[in-house]
């Protein structure tokens, strides 16, 4: 029988904390104050152009039919989007504004609605993950759920999660097989999953020349897809092969688009930018489990708040023998492995 769990609330409407504007705004990270003046000068710099196009758009929309009005509106949105700042240093108002522009642009382009959240980190939360290598059976339900939840490019078959079929007697990932496709679990093997470990000392964010990737106060390492210039230095810097690049325009069938999105999470990307696992930021900031943990049929995946002494993850850290990958690199992953 081994019952599968229902995927909850996927099609449910938003209420409560749904739109992401509930009262869980976090304190601004200290970096904001430092960078604020930068942002102001950028706004002054582009303010003139912005108002100019808005004016042009208004003129265009006043005279012509809806179609050209929509085209003008889209052009104006594109313009403002192109000259917007780095999400990391935006005020909450600016975050709201860009999210609304993106939602409107999606509506103009596709005729459907998406909800893009700009919810900030919940104070008092530091996300952590534990992966039970005695439990994982290599079914890869987590990979499938992740692809669907996070609107990953179907054309290139992008996946954030890798599951390695490991030979008994070694922990060397290179000796494992990340490309298996046969009946699992296979005798003489165990299974070990990797994804972004949301390092507490991430080597990837440090190297980004434009600050397009950073660690949020709740410990999630995020990418501002609109700010990334696509140099892929972060991809070279990641010791866990957790970052993915959009080598081409990503494609998700319209009816498969997960409409519950977050600016820093699963909103649709474009070609030439980096992306990565965000512990399903669009779900976890609402209190939900990440899609991988929810989909796992074996209970090998444990997710929770590291700052809560009563959380499951803390019990695992305290009572099981845990290890992390490449601890010698000092990256301090917030992703632990353990055994029964």
């Amino acid at each position: 029988m081994s019952a599968r769990l229902p995927i909850l609330g996927q099609e449910a409407p938003n209420h409560g904390c749904g739109s992401g504007t509930c009262g869980c705004s976090s304190e601004a990270p200290p970096v904001v104050e430092e960078r604020l003046d930068t942002d102001v000068s950028r706004r002054q710099f582009f303010g003139l152009f912005g108002s100019l196009t808005a004016g042009v758009a208004a003129v265009a929309s006043s005279g012509c039919g809806t179609k050209s009005a929509e085209a003008a509106e889209k052009a104006s949105l594109d313009w403002e989007e192109y000259f917007k700042g780095n999400y990391q240093v935006m005020t909450d108002e600016e975050k709201r504004a860009t999210v609304e522009r993106l939602e409107r642009r999606w509506e103009l382009e596709h005729g459907s609605r998406v909800e893009i959240s700009d919810q900030n980190a919940v104070p008092g939360v530091l996300y952590g993950y534990a992966f039970n290598i005695s439990k994982c059976q290599g079914y890869m339900d987590c990979v499938d759920a992740c692809v669907k939840e996070n609107n990953l490019d179907r054309e290139s078959g992008m996946q954030y999660i890798r599951i390695f079929e490991m030979d008994e007697g070694t922990m060397q990932l290179g000796d494992g097989d990340g490309r298996f496709y046969h009946e699992v679990p296979a005798a003489g093997h165990f299974y070990l999953g990797t994804q972004c470990f949301q390092c507490d000392n991430p080597p990837c964010t440090k190297v980004c020349p434009v600050g397009a990737t950073w660690k949020e106060p709740d410990g999630i390492v995020v990418v501002d897809y609109d700010w990334c210039i696509g140099c892929r230095y972060c991809q070279a810097a990641c010791p866990y092969w957790a970052r993915r690049f959009n080598w081409q325009e990503p494609f998700v069938p319209e009816d498969e688009v997960n409409q519950e999105q977050h600016y820093l999470g699963n909103r649709l990307r474009k070609k030439g930018v980096m992306e990565k696992c965000t512990y399903c930021i669009q779900r976890t900031r609402k209190g939900r489990n990440p899609a991988c943990a929810e989909a796992c049929p074996t209970g090998a995946r444990i997710f929770g708040n590291l700052l809560d002494p009563d959380s499951e993850i803390r019990w695992v850290l305290a009572n099981k023998k845990v290890f992390r990958l490449k601890e010698d690199l000092g990256t301090e992953p917030k992703f632990w492995y353990f055994m029964d």
Binding site: R35, T38, S41, R42, F45, F46, G85, N86, Q88, V89, P209, V210, G211, A212, W227, C228, I229, G230, C231, R232, F245, N246, K271, G272, V273, M274
Partner: peptide
């Protein structure tokens, strides 16, 4: 670069 049109993001002052 994946996004050469966004290279201005690197300019000190208006970028980061």
């Amino acid at each position: 670069m994946g996004g050469p049109q966004r290279l201005w993001h690197m300019l000190p002052g208006i970028g980061y």
